[in-house]
Design a protein around this nucleic acid. Sequence first.
DNA 1: TCATAATTGTGATGTTTGTCACACAATAGA
DNA 2: TCTATTGTGTGACAAACATCACAATTATGA
Lengths: 187, 187
Amino acid sequence: MSNQLRKHIEEVVALSDDEYTFVLSHFSKEAYGKSDFLIQKGESVNHCYYVISGLLKLVYDDTNGKEHITSFAMENWWESDFAAFFTQTKAQMSLQCIEETHVLSISLNNYNKLAADFTKMEYFFLKKSNAGHIASQRRILSFLTSSAKERYEQLLEQYPILFQRVPKMLLASYLGVSRETLSRLSH
Amino acid sequence: MSNQLRKHIEEVVALSDDEYTFVLSHFSKEAYGKSDFLIQKGESVNHCYYVISGLLKLVYDDTNGKEHITSFAMENWWESDFAAFFTQTKAQMSLQCIEETHVLSISLNNYNKLAADFTKMEYFFLKKSNAGHIASQRRILSFLTSSAKERYEQLLEQYPILFQRVPKMLLASYLGVSRETLSRLSH
DNA sequence: TCATAATTGTGATGTTTGTCACACAATAGA
DNA sequence: TCTATTGTGTGACAAACATCACAATTATGA
């Protein structure tokens, strides 16, 4: 039994063996191949995912058929179309594999049950949500204060691993510039 | 005794009179005049604020002395420099009044105590944090998918009241365009 | 392996947006 | 009320970035 999730949770709250077994019983392990979809635009979103290994992209397709990457999700990240997940509406985004990916998936029912029945996990989810909120604000600030080139350099500094694992056209889509402009920025 | 906060919380969880009294005891009421600071860049951030009335701006000052508005906070919004508040680091942003503003303020200690001692409020804070995260993602998406003009029109549609209460140069700063460009977009 | 698809780089050109400069209007405080 | 401050509009120009076109390179799968 992998205890990667346990280590991850224990960065916030300590768990006994029994507690961890209880937590884990709310998740199911799933494997996806390259370019598989975990969430498809327009369908209902019943799960939130914890990434064990691999790489995902959360994508919004605009009316002109252009795709925009809201975020990448790597090892130890939590991802979903949270708006659709929490409010039980149809997905406005797709969640798709960039690499073969293993996840632990939790349904909204189990998420709510786990939070309600086990305060430590409610606390953990609160911490994670706050951290996600803060990360999003940092990203907003980078759009407000920085040029495309500066955003590129910030990303390179913060997540150099992405440049080895992700095609540059996807990085461009994440940064909000055309692939041509990104190509010209990178030298 | 105002029960505005009570109504606000009860959109998520029901409270008895005693429970609300208990919750309220963790907050203190504060009043600020126009252009007063609730948080100053560089200082430590000990409180998170619930806006009863008035209007605040959360501002980042870049190295060129230009100010960028991360968000506005109106009635019934929760605001702080959350990164600094939760991690107990110095403020990277300022929180300043645009109008005379009344708030309920809660310290990090009381926030943690309240969440730990009263599951309903931990649940409430989790819901609020998730909602904040979702709102931030929507804003990121608008930077990725929309031109300055489109972002202007979206803001006008979503928060028309801001156009009556906020100078246009501040709206420009929130939208991430120069005030001159905003002026040209608006007709 | 080979053919096809996906990705990347680069020139030419047009659009969007920022910057500077200045005039004018509105507002706030003594 | 008067004055200083703050906010607004607009022209001229420069910079940043997108788009289109095409060639070249690199994966991918039958």
